[in-house]
Design a protein around this nucleic acid. Structure first.
Lengths: 144, 144
DNA sequence: CTAGGTGTTACTTTTTAAGTAACTGTTATT
DNA sequence: AATAACAGTTACTTAAAAAGTAACACCTAG
């Protein structure tokens, strides 16, 4: 998942919606906070909504979390916006005429699965509520 | 680290060298097994060598592991070929005029560090020797 | 001394993801 | 009902990243 910051933006959206209760939640306003563009925000929100994390209405500016922020984990968000679910990637083009080339893919897939599991377990322990509180604490510290 | 398979290729190289003792270890021969090209192999081998995992000689076809395969972990290899050491990535362009935008980066970096730690701990438990044995077992099963 | 290899750098191509635009259909408001 | 604004979606463009390739200086073994 090199270079992609979709997960970061998705967390940003959810945190934004939870923090600024009853403010402007148009895709335009959120895009402004992320310094991105509304269309991209709408796509991410669509993924979050399909994954059941966000409740939206089609022509209406009224997104809200589908459940309390302490019941949404980083893993939930990751699974919502990433469809490969692979942090590491096997080289799918190896020489099948070589004993190593024709077996290494399966070997590595098994190994990478294990690493993936560990990463996902860790994501599961990180809750949106914690992230939001961390943002608020950092903001408070700035103002002192 | 989407799409990148440098780690996979690096493991492939090391496994290849350990399995085929005293055979042709020219970058051309190894490239043939990976179905890649010699220059790329030489670059990866250079990284592995700089990280102290591989011993090479400049004009000579004589690469060998610097220590036994059971003393080389997947983490060693990962650290050797990846210099960002980040499986997840923060969006570095957020709006500093927004309370969320100006703090979320630090918040996410801390969270991602935790996930990275978990992934690396898992990589540490996977040893090159295990991967090689797995390849050989798979090959043996094919021939039955 | 020469043929063939390594190590390295620069460059090109391919792939991926972000960014953008456009359009349909829904909602809220008057 | 009309309309203005927005969500949801698709298609397309641009930018970024990684793989692939070529070239070359230097080293080594025969």
């Amino acid at each position: 998942m090199k270079y992609s910051h979709k997960l970061s933006d998705a967390v940003h959206i959810l945190a934004y919606i939870d923090i600024f209760q009853n403010e402007d939640f148009s895709s335009k306003a959120i895009a402004d906070s992320i310094e991105s563009n509304p269309s991209l925000i709408r796509r991410l929100m669509s993924s979050l909504s399909k994954a059941g994390l966000l409740i939206t209405r089609s022509g209406s500016v009224s997104p809200r979390l589908s459940r309390p922020a302490d019941q949404i984990t980083l893993l939930d968000i990751y699974l919502a916006i990433d469809d490969s679910h692979e942090l590491l990637h096997v080289d799918e083009k190896t020489n099948m005429n070589c004993p190593v080339g024709r077996n290494i893919q399966d070997t590595l897939n098994a190994a990478y699965d294990q690493v993936q599991q560990a990463a996902e377990e860790s994501m599961k322990t990180i809750v949106l509520q914690d992230l939001i509180e961390d943002v608020l604490i950092r903001e408070k510290n700035r103002n002192q």
